[in-house]
């Protein structure tokens, strides 16, 4: 199954929230949808769920417009919420039935998932009596109870303790290996890096960057060299005077030197070997997803600086 979002735009009144967003996701893979607050992630998700129709553009599944009767989508909203005063199993069955399951199917699925998440003992209690983390697990069960083809998880890890986070990671891995399309929306880059092959970074309604994470990282030419050394101050002084160096900065284990041109690495090496500085290692600096995110959503940087 292939989910394609093609050039969608959406305005609410005067405000244009989406300005031409396109991406695609395939069965058995996870897509990370990143962006700052208000970048348009939730609107994009709601358009996929057909809550809003886009002003232009389309959402296709295997080349055809989405028909929610034949495609089952499970959505876990960032704002969690179910019925606090109702029994866990009752509402799980209700949500299963709403998405087209029979009562017995819904019950069987709910029980299976509750077992998987070690929640079977809470089947008959009212939701409001559960802890926040456990409520969140129930929310996940409600999302998955209809055995959806597409699973959209909005900040799934927030509020989970490390043990539950590992449990959820396992469940997500199972979803991916079961051939579901998983769309992740999160600010926690480490989880995105762990699961997602592809990412989409939204900024102010436009796509700043999208594609395979490894390729993005590779092509993210930052011309930075990480020099690991104990004589940080000395090294910093040494490179500040060099013409070929654009910026320098201190890190925990040494310094980071940004070059004007990557080819000038040779000069750096010769300067280093001429000096008396004790160097442990010189390596190309690998950007983290966090760096890429901050860099591409540049207005974020401006805001922090101002």
């Amino acid at each position: 199954m292939l989910l394609e979002v093609k050039d969608i735009t959406k305005s609410f009144g005067e405000k244009q929230v989406l300005k031409g967003v396109s991406f695609s996701a395939e069965s058995g893979s996870a897509l990370g949808l990143l962006g700052r607050n208000g970048a348009g992630k939730t609107t994009t998700i709601r358009i996929i769920m057909q809550l809003f129709s886009p002003n232009s553009g389309s959402v296709l599944i295997d080349g055809k417009p989405v028909d929610l009767k034949s495609v089952n989508i499970g959505y876990m909203p960032e704002e969690r919420g179910l019925y606090p005063k109702k029994k866990v199993i009752e509402q799980l069955i209700f949500f299963g039935e709403l998405r087209g399951l029979s009562k017995s199917e819904a019950k069987a699925n709910a029980k299976k998932l509750l077992n998987r998440l070690h929640m079977e003992e809470y089947e008959n209690v009212k939701l409001s009596t559960l802890s926040k983390g456990n409520q969140q697990k129930i929310q996940l069960v409600a999302t998955l109870v209809s055995d959806p083809d597409i699973v959209i998880l909005d900040e799934p890890f927030s509020g989970l303790d490390p043990v539950n986070a590992i449990l959820l990671k396992d469940v997500v891995r199972e979803l991916i290996s079961d051939g579901k399309i998983v769309i992740f929306s999160s600010h926690q880059m480490n989880y995105i890096e762990e699961f997602c092959d592809n990412i989409v970074i939204l900024n102010e309604g436009k796509i700043s960057v999208s594609g395979n994470i490894k390729e993005i990282k590779r092509s993210y030419t930052n011309n930075k060299v990480a020099i690991e050394t104990e004589d940080k101050e000395e090294a910093l002084k040494l490179f500040m005077a060099e013409n070929c160096v654009k910026t320098t900065e201190l890190t925990d284990s040494g310094i980071l030197v940004e070059l004007v041109e990557w080819s000038e690495i040779k000069d750096i090496m010769s300067v280093l070997s001429d000096s008396k500085i004790n160097v442990q290692s010189v390596s190309m600096y690998e950007p983290t997803l966090n760096d890429i995110f901050v860099d591409y959503t540049d207005s974020a940087v401006e805001e922090v600086q101002s």
Partner: peptide, 15 residues
Amino acid sequence: AEKSSRAMEVLITSA
């Protein structure tokens, strides 16, 4: 109540 408990988010995307 459904809206303030945010059950609505799930409901409106399910039905």
